[in-house]
Write a protein that binds this DNA or RNA. Sequence first.
RNA 1: CCGGGUGUGGCGCAGUUUGGUAGCGCACUUGCUUUGGGAGCAAGGGGCCGCUGGUUCAAAUCCAGUCACCCGGACCA
Length: 478
Amino acid sequence: MAKEKKVQQITDMDVDFAQWFTDVVTKAELIDYAGVKGFFILRPYAFAIWENIQSILDKRFKDLGHENVSMPVLIPESLLQKEKDHVEGFAPEVAWVTHGGSEELSERLCVRPTSETLFCDHWSHVLRSWRDLPMLYNQWCSVVRWEKTTRPFLRGREFHWQEGHTLHATREEAEFETQQMLNVYADFCENSLAMPVIKGQKTEKEKFAGAVATYTVECMMHDKKALQGGTSHYFGDGFARAFNIQFTDKDNKLAYPHQTSWGMSTRIIGGIIMTHGDNSGLVLPPKIAPIQVMVIPIAMHKEGVLEKAAELVSRLKVAGIRVKSDVSDQSPGWKFAEYEMKGIPLRIEIGPKDIEAGQCMAVRRDNGEKIPVSLDSLEKRIPELLEEVHQGLYLKAKKNLTENTRPAKTVEEVKSIIAEKGGFVKTMWCRDLECEMKMKEQAGVTSRCMPFEQETIADTCVCCGKPADTMVIWGVAY
RNA sequence: CCGGGUGUGGCGCAGUUUGGUAGCGCACUUGCUUUGGGAGCAAGGGGCCGCUGGUUCAAAUCCAGUCACCCGGACCA
């Protein structure tokens, strides 16, 4: 009976995945819709997740020598225009500011969709010598892109992200940086978010506007669609030339620096939800969960229960666990369901019977397993259990990715795999844009990436049959 | 941008066909009893029926317009 009531609250994910997602983001109190289409309020619980993501990434960036800065929110039109490919890529989806107060501006200003042009303009002012390099900058901010279709976390007209921008003396250094930051994202996804990734390079068609090369970590969601987890671009010196960024090198010659940028956004929270969530709601990976352990006292009115619960909380806090207890007068069953909805990785039940037995009951959110934990070993067992939840989530997601990535040799094969099973398809490809377009038209898939870990599926392109030595992962993307 | 859907206490909805005192469930407040999977009883509070105009003695309901959001598609680093 209780079960029935529970599932009535949110749509079954196997019936309507999109509706399930909407239900979860609202019922777990992550977002609220704002007054303007495509703008979302990140409620405290969602922002706490983002802050945990920020603090882990920010530390890694700084450990690698990056510094945080803040660029303006507005870009003059003339500045945006400077790099041809870049403006072509972004102009259709920028928001314009045309008035200051009641006065029309002499030049319209766009709300930044990304900050390459701002960094470039700044660097053209301050860069002098090879001794100034590398410049390793990052900023945490929000950007605006006037999307037509919007969804919480996945596609908003405003979204929060970090954008790293770096400037290097040589091509080699910049390329190294690009790969290094891609690896930071891959490691973060796998070890902090329990989301397995495929690392690879984007095709010409899918690469960033103005980049020489774009790299990505691609994730597979529970519904087998693809989500880009993070992205890292190598720019060569194209932007430097367009913005006239030059430095005097060791030989006293003027040179153009090589540039990178890389980013991860709040979209990854959508990825977390769609990777780990289930029909009871959200499931958060322990490393970024705002509350890792929720202590629920049972039969609170009984002597000593509340005191014992408070003792567990303070012991776990000292042990470095993000822990809370719920001593409200809701029934235990209500609390169980509530904190499952909110995705808290571990629940601890403590009642008179437990106290008598010198234990508490830990319940894993990922698989529902109930584990008696001796109160003596609390500080040791709870972190272990959190790690086990992380592993459990990772392995489940990995299994989903592996089992739903299939090789194919013909377009027909791709088409039927996508139609019948979904997921990723790996095929050989001749690198021709025409074949890539055909895949979209005929099979409804876009290229996700050319994985670093290449395999030989066949000798010829899946589409045109010409000789091909590049393996591409195809899929339907968010 | 195209198609579909929805706007009624905080949330979810009924009421609209056939105009006539604005209702239900959850949530909220107070009290008592409960507490190992969404507790029970009792008493309460809370509404420009998205907005604008029209028809009418009378509009949540009919008509016209408009706005917003959701879903799908197209589009989109």
